[in-house]
């Protein structure tokens, strides 16, 4: 029983930032944008939340700052990938490098000189076996919002059309580029909260490259979850549960190499890709540019 509680607590604590970011990424990918730069967006947000929480003493102001920074970073991504029609994968890779360099430089200049780990105020959390913090509550709300937006609104229908066939979408009187910008905005809010979670909810600190590939894990989870909000959230929780099981295996000294659990989520995602492929589940125009007036 203790083990189950422990795994659940770890899955929720580690999985929340993935679930939040995936809620945004799924809407964005449905609109036809593959945001490789999610990793960098989350990293910048984590730094912004850390910095503002440190300066003002308020973690919630930190969360707001993280969302603002995520919107700025995504704005730059959108400027190149949507406005200028540059290749989404190239732009995303560039953004990741830029964010890694910018946060690393700022952290080095402002904080790393003392050599000690700096703690900043974190959002309030309940006590108990399964602690729940303030940011965790947003995860189910955002997943439901993504589901409702995509499948219960006219806007969502248009967004999905922009990701399937932007030309027909435009012919039906919508503006695919505008829809993609709007989806990018929603994804940025989610990525900002996910980044903030890492610094002002989970650790209360910042470290260089602290996202450590979580942005890519989210992209994999969206694939694994077949581009649906609930499926992606489930994939994120499954991945974080694998980490939870790993702690258990370590505690019990089970003769299972920890790297197996580390690699498991990625192998599962690959197996899904090999077994099922994109089929009809993925947006047909994912990562395809669209030029208005053509």
């Amino acid at each position: 029983m203790n083990e189950v509680l422990g795994i659940t607590a770890a899955a929720l604590s580690l999985g929340t930032p993935l679930v939040i970011a995936a809620a945004g990424e799924v809407v964005l990918e449905r609109s036809g944008v593959l945001n490789i730069g999610l990793e960098g967006t989350m990293l910048s947000s984590a730094f912004a939340a850390f910095y503002v929480s440190h300066v003002t003493g308020s973690p919630w102001l930190g969360v707001l700052a993280a969302i603002f920074v995520a919107l700025c970073v995504s704005g730059l991504t959108g400027l190149f990938a949507l406005g200028l029609g540059a290749d989404q994968v190239v732009v995303g890779t560039g953004m990741n490098l830029l964010c890694l360099g910018a946060t690393g430089s700022l952290f080095f200049t402002g904080f790393a000189r003392g050599g000690e780990l700096l703690s900043v105020p974190v959002v309030p959390s309940t006590a108990g076996r399964i602690p729940v913090n303030g940011l965790m509550l947003f995860a189910p709300l955002l997943v439901l919002a993504a589901w409702w937006l995509l499948w219960r609104t006219r806007w969502g229908l248009a967004v999905r059309a922009a990701g399937e066939d932007p030309v027909s979408c435009a012919a039906a009187g919508h503006f695919p580029l505008r829809l993609r910008w709007q989806a990018l905005g929603f994804a940025a809010v989610c990525a900002g909260m996910a980044g903030a979670y890492l610094s002002v909810a989970q650790t209360g600190s910042f470290a260089e490259n602290m996202t450590a590939g979580r942005g890519f894990v989210v992209i994999a989870a969206v694939t694994f979850g077949r581009w649906t909000p609930l499926g992606s959230a489930g994939a994120c929780l499954l991945i974080s549960a694998a980490y939870g099981v790993q702690y258990l295996a370590k505690a019990r000294e089970l003769p299972i190499p920890p790297q197996l659990f580390d690699a498991l989520p990625y192998m599962l995602a690959l197996a899904v890709l090999i077994g099922a492929g994109r089929g009809k589940a993925g947006p047909a125009a994912l990562a395809q540019p669209f030029e208005a007036g053509r």
């Binding site: 029609g85 540059a86 290749d87 732009v91 560039g94 953004m95 830029l98 430089s105 125009a285 669209f290």
Partner: peptide, 28 residues
């Protein structure tokens, strides 16, 4: 000067090269 600055240079380079060279025409 933090050596992480090299990532900033490389990122900026990629963004600008993406603009001048990796602009794909819509294939749809």
């Amino acid at each position: 000067l933090p050596k992480e600055i090299s990532f900033v240079i490389q990122g900026l380079l990629l963004l600008l090269v993406a603009y001048v060279r990796w602009r794909r025409r819509s294939t749809l």
